[in-house]
Amino acid sequence: MNTSHTYKGEIMITTGPSRRRRGRPALAVAFVATLGLAAAACGSDDDAGGSSSSGASDEVITLAVNPWNGSAVNVAVAEQLIESEIGQTVETVEIDENATWPAINTGDISAALEMWPSGHAQNVADFIDNPDGNVANAGLLGPVGKIGWYIPTYMVEQHPELATWEGFQDPELAKLFATAETGDKGQFLGGDPSFVQYDESIIANLGLPVEVVYAGSEEAILAALDAAYSREEPILVYLWTPHSAHNKYDLTEVELPAYTDECYASAADGGADVACDYPADELFKIVSEDLASSSPAVNTLLTKMNYTTADQIEMLAAVETDGKSIEDAAAAWIEAHPDTWKAWLP
């Protein structure tokens, strides 16, 4: 009969004589000693401060890699140029974009190279515009992002009306996108909460028989898109360019009423009146304000760094379709476009 497990929890109380257990400390010690060998033999490389006349210093530069490939290729280009042209060591940290801001504010991270303005109004106000903040806007990166509504191109081929928002006014066409979550209405798969989303307002103000379901993460949107695409099913998603998904799937942007400033007048208070397309997102860079004094050369390079959407897509395609590593793609771009990056050097 085995009743060593009691109802109160699965903690087993052994009440045997305790002296038996005292027998093997030597073995335990030998075991732990092997594990914890030379805990003292640690070498943490803490090298700080000290700048030379050329503007280079021996400070280690820490760059934030945010969780998408665009961010990774920007950082790889900057990393290779800082190390080869300025001679400072670069470390990279993979980190959520929102967590990046406080870390740059303290100077623990030196810079992040691809911020999407639409998702960071609050952070800009708190860390850049705030006089006590320690984050500086380091100018535009170059590529222009754009949020929009996307459907697989095979849907447009079957129903050409769906190329514009007017097509979704037809309840029968909208119903093609219906799911168990939305009943008779079409489903609009809303995105990762890190981006601004006015889709509920747009849908209400345009009077579309469509309902938003929030996917909750970029991974969820991509998985849903991949699944629908593989089964050639209808799907209407929130997505943006540049994005790796466009290399993998043939997608068409649904045309919404053109963006105007008046249409976005209510955007600051939640955007209840928004009834038009998203504005373009001019991607920008942020650096720690300390960088200008501690590593001026790096600060100059990162501030001047600017290339085109085509430049970035060249690297993204190498990574996402040719299977190159991020580092190799960046190195190939540096090799091919010296004129572009030479202009960034201090």
Partner: peptide
């Protein structure tokens, strides 16, 4: 994170958006 909405989506939002 997978479209369940409810309280979960609010906590995800807290991670993703400073406001």
């Amino acid at each position: 994170l997978v479209g369940g909405g409810g309280l979960g989506l609010e906590t995800v939002r807290a991670l993703r958006r400073s406001d």
